[in-house]
Design a binder for these strands. Sequence first.
DNA 1: CGCTTTTTTCATCAGGTGATGAAAAATGGT
DNA 2: ACCATTTTTCATCACCTGATGAAAAAAGCG
Lengths: 230, 230
Amino acid sequence: MTVAKPRARAGGRGRPSKAKGLDLKETILDAAEGLFARHGFHGVTTRQVAAEAGVDTALIHYYFGAKRELFDAVFLRRAEILNTAREASMNAYVKAHAEAMTVEGVIEAFIEPLLRISQEGGAGWKNYFALVAQVNNTPAWGGETMARFFDPVVHQLVETLKTVRPQAAYRDLYWCYQFLTGSMMLSLSETGRIDSLSEGECHSSDLEAVRQRLFAYCAAGFEAVIAKAG
Amino acid sequence: MTVAKPRARAGGRGRPSKAKGLDLKETILDAAEGLFARHGFHGVTTRQVAAEAGVDTALIHYYFGAKRELFDAVFLRRAEILNTAREASMNAYVKAHAEAMTVEGVIEAFIEPLLRISQEGGAGWKNYFALVAQVNNTPAWGGETMARFFDPVVHQLVETLKTVRPQAAYRDLYWCYQFLTGSMMLSLSETGRIDSLSEGECHSSDLEAVRQRLFAYCAAGFEAVIAKAG
DNA sequence: CGCTTTTTTCATCAGGTGATGAAAAATGGT
DNA sequence: ACCATTTTTCATCACCTGATGAAAAAAGCG
C-alpha cells in the first residue's frame, strides 16, 4: 500500500508548476491501475487510490469524474497503444510473408507484441495485463468492455487466419481464438499460481518460457481443430 | 435481481419445521453463488444476498459468520464434488486404457466431467464455474485459493501425462496445463464475449461445441510443445 | 501589483456497509 | 402445558462509501 502523503509538493495547496498537472494525472492513473489490477473495480476505493497516489480524494473527481470513469481512463490509456502495436505487428507479418504465411506465424504476430511490451514496459504494463485478464473473466460487464476496446484487432486476426486456411470455418476459428485468449491472458496476468503448482519448476514472471511454448501450442491447436472439422 | 421478499414462510418469525433450516442455508448459498459469480466478492453486499434469498440480513451472519466465510462456504460446497468427479474420471480412464493411453484421452478425462456437470447440473453449477474462473484470474488471493482446493487433481493430471509421455519435461507439462486451464475456465464461465465477437456464429452456452474442439486443441498443443522441446 | 484562472484542499453530506445484541416467535421434549 | 432451545426478526451501531461545493492557494498575465 505504501502511503506517501505529501507527494504533490512540500508547500501548501494551490496551482502547480505548469506541466505538473498532467504528471499528477498519470500518477493517479498508475496508482489506480495497480490497485484495480490486484483487487478489482469494487475492491478498491477512491480514497485508497488517492492515498496510493499521495493526493487528495477530491482531486481524483476533479480530474476524472466518477469512479467508473477513472477505471475507463485506466483501461483506455494503454489499450490504444496495444492495438496500434498489434496491428502493426500483424500488418508487418502479412507484408513480409505474403506468399507463405503459416498459422503459427500469424499467431505469433498477434501475441508477441504483448509479451514484448510486458517484458520491456515495466510494472505499469504488468498491472495492466492483470487488469485486462480480470475484466476478460468478468461476466457482468467484462465482455462488453473487452469488445469495445479489442474487437477490431481480433477480427483482423481471424480474417488473416481465414486467408491462410480458407477451408476453415469461422465457427472453428472463433472457438480457437477463445481458447487462445484464455491461455494468453492467464499467462500475461502472472498470477503466481504456476509457481506453487509446479513447486518451483516454473515461474509466472518467466515470459520467455511462455514465448517458447505458447505460439506452437496454439498453432497446433488451431490446426487440429481445423483438420478435425474439415 | 428478482426480489422475492416473503420467501421463508408466510407467517411471522420463529423456528421453522425441522429440515427447513438446512434448506434455507442452501438457498442463501445459491443466492450468494449467483451474485458473487456475476459481480465478484467485493461487488456484492450481504444485503443483496439476503434480498435475493428472501431472507433477513442477520440470518446470513447467523449461519455463516463474516462475509468472507460465506464466500468460502460457497466455494467449498461444489469443489469437493468436482474433485471427486474428476478423480473418478481419470482413474476410470487409466484403468480402461492402461496399455494404450493417449494425451487426448487423459485430457478428455480431466475436462469432460466439468463440461458434463455444467450441462446437466443446472444454473447453480454454471454460476459456480463463472465464480471459479474469476478467482482463477484474481492476483490478490486467487492463486492461493485455487491451490488450496484444486492442486491435487492437477498433480494427478500431470503425473498421468508424464506416464504417457515419459520423455516430456515437467516444466513443459506445467506450462501446457496453464494454457489448458486458461482456455477451459474461460469457456466454462460463459462470459458471452464469443457471441458478440463472432456475430452470432458461436454461443458461449454451446458447451457441445467446446467439447468437440477443446480436447483436440489442447492435446495437439501438448504434443507440439513436447515435440519442440524433445 | 491586482485580477483572473486553475489547481488543490477542506469540510461535509446522504446513503450504504458489515456486523451485533436483544427480543420475538416457533419448535421439541417431557 | 410448560420450558429450554433454536431460529428469525428488528433496531441499531460505528464506520466507510462516492461525491460535491466552497474556500484557499498558487500561477499566469497585464
